[in-house]
Write a protein that binds this DNA or RNA. Structure first.
Lengths: 338, 338
DNA sequence: CTGTTAGCGCCTTCAT
DNA sequence: ATGAAGGCGCTAACAG
């Protein structure tokens, strides 16, 4: 763990000269440069970024805070973030909140202590605490995937409302009129925005919007499972189900299978989020695929631009379109039920 | 971004006293403590971990370097790592090498600059460079998932040889005698260890081991696709295929489907690595599931133990068993080919 | 082109 | 129980 001083001594120059050579800042004669570089090689010197940070106030590190890295949607975002960060020389820390606002603020505090330059956040709820705190620490944030109410922070997300609208239009086009929606908690924008898109599609088609067909729970396998079981139990017999994320869809699938319902013969199923192509040999579910990698990449680029001094420019909200991919889980309404 | 000095001024004490209150080290009268805590709250003071690090030489941050966080096997490891690290107050940085030894060493250098306390590494190959470098920087490493030749580093992995043996035994039990194996590059231990287990199972059963039935390529969907196409082309007509990781299996699946082969009617398929239960409604492939989360957790605990001064204790190699899960992709040999 | 001085924010050490 | 001095490794600012 050689220091700059040792390198300087060995090369017979001052620490400042070594610094200049290492950072390619300022002048250095070819001869000096060579001597310094030799000393660096001999000692295996690696500059101490911590000391550097203390002076420069920049850690060249950002943090990615998601609900669960294990969800392939977030994994793919993470990959986009890491790739974009790496090309700019930034390191990435990551944290999982499990949709808990308590975990969220704790992590953000811990990360702030470590002097991260910026945060990419998938908010766990609509608490203002994380934003207030980050603002007080002058740490820029870019929100990914979700909207934040009444805050002037940058956002990069997919168009939930339009995506939901498209999916439901697709179902309506197939003749469905009783379409249930299963979604996440009410304090998450993706949860509610998708219901809004769903309702707009119904209204436009002159179909009734009934609260019994709208279920809210957590964005999880268990949530989807519970919601579908409840829907099946209440006797409303929808001919199609719209799951607002991938975990919900898998829970729905399980519940439907257990109930002996065939898809799409007995009921159609559509969902937000696709799985990476690598992961299914023969994709079955009709989805609204979100550009997860792009979301991560764009958010990172926006954040890094802020760090480069783009703080002055006004709030940016980047909304990317999703893509409807029609597969076999959505079909015409069962003839006996039209 | 208040500093300890500002807090001290506001509380009418010295910086040292604030430090003691913040760190619960040394004495402080209740009255002083209260004053300091009030000042901290008023100023929104957050201790600067960077300055702290500079003195203490400990960043309380570790790094996880994998080939691709997008592979659910590594994603799950990452989650295990993060959970274990968080409970101990450690932050985690992550990096993707894409199995490139060049990327690997570059990342490790970057992370070392940031004074990470330790590294969890899935080696991209069998280069000694990363280990030599980390040793020179006195940064402990724990290798995850793979073996490292001739290095005395800690390892936490699944038993590849035994797992492969089990999978192939299963196939042999179903009557298969011509079993092909498709695997990754030869410089990755999981790649070769699994072939060793495969061969042992064959030999024990008195079956021939033929090189034509062993294909090496990259641990990727494309690799699996290429290898199976080649196997189909060479006319050896195996009745079963053993894929040594999940990506290879999906590539194999694609190639088999395109060739019009039914599974398991025409050919059986088994693989290492399961997908998270969340994401397949009705799992189809017979797998040797690795305890990925546990791998990540155990490796992190071992690393943190090293950081706590366990450097003296001798090298540890933790090998966890995998679990054979028989599903529908493996069946008896087609009757016309026994 | 190169060196000197000073200080980033904190904590170890020693003093009171 | 509290404070003062000094330094971790580096680099901005200013000489020369």
């Amino acid at each position: 763990m050689a220091t700059i001083i040792e390198v300087a001594r060995r090369a017979g120059v001052s620490a400042m000269t070594v610094s200049r050579v290492v950072n390619r800042s300022g002048y250095a004669s070819a001869a000096t440069r060579a001597k310094v570089e030799e000393a660096i090689a001999e000692l295996g010197y690696v500059p101490n970024a911590v000391a550097r940070q203390l002076r420069s106030k920049r850690s060249h590190t950002i943090a990615l805070v998601v609900s669960d890295i294990t969800n392939p949607f977030f994994t793919t975002i993470a990959r986009g973030v890491e790739d974009a960060a790496a090309t700019r020389g930034y390191a990435v820390m990551f944290a999982n909140t499990d949709e808990s606002e308590v975990e969220e603020i704790e992590y953000i505090r811990m990360l702030a202590q470590r002097q991260i330059d910026g945060v990419l956040l998938v908010p766990a709820g609509n608490s203002a605490a994380p934003f207030r705190f980050l603002e007080s620490q002058e740490i820029p944030v870019v929100v990914i995937d979700r909207r934040v109410v009444s805050r002037k922070v940058d956002e990069v997300r997919c168009d939930s409302e339009a995506g939901a609208y498209e999916l439901v239009r697709h179902l309506i086009g197939l003749g469905h009129t009783r379409i249930a929606v299963i979604t996440g908690r009410r304090n998450i924008s993706t949860s509610t925005d998708r219901v809004v898109g769903y309702e707009r599609a119904l209204r436009e088609a002159g179909l009734p919007v009934s609260p019994e067909l709208e279920a809210y729970d957590s964005f999880s396998l268990e949530g989807g499972y519970r919601q579908v079981n409840q829907i099946l139990a209440n006797g409303l017999k929808p001919t199609a189900i719209f799951a607002t994320n991938n975990f919900l869809a898998f829970g729905a699938l399980r519940a439907l299978r257990e109930a002996g319902m065939r898809i799409p013969d007995d009921v159609s199923l559509v969902t937000f989020d696709d799985l990476p192509v690598e992961w299914h040999d023969d994709p079955f579910i009709t989805v609204l695929a979100q550009p997860a990698y792009e979301l991560g990449r764009r958010a990172t680029e926006l954040l890094l631009a802020r760090l480069d001094g783009g703080a002055a420019t006004k709030r940016q909200v980047i909304v990317l379109p999703g893509e409807l991919i029609v597969r076999r889980s959505s079909g015409p309404v069962p003839t006996d039920r039209v």
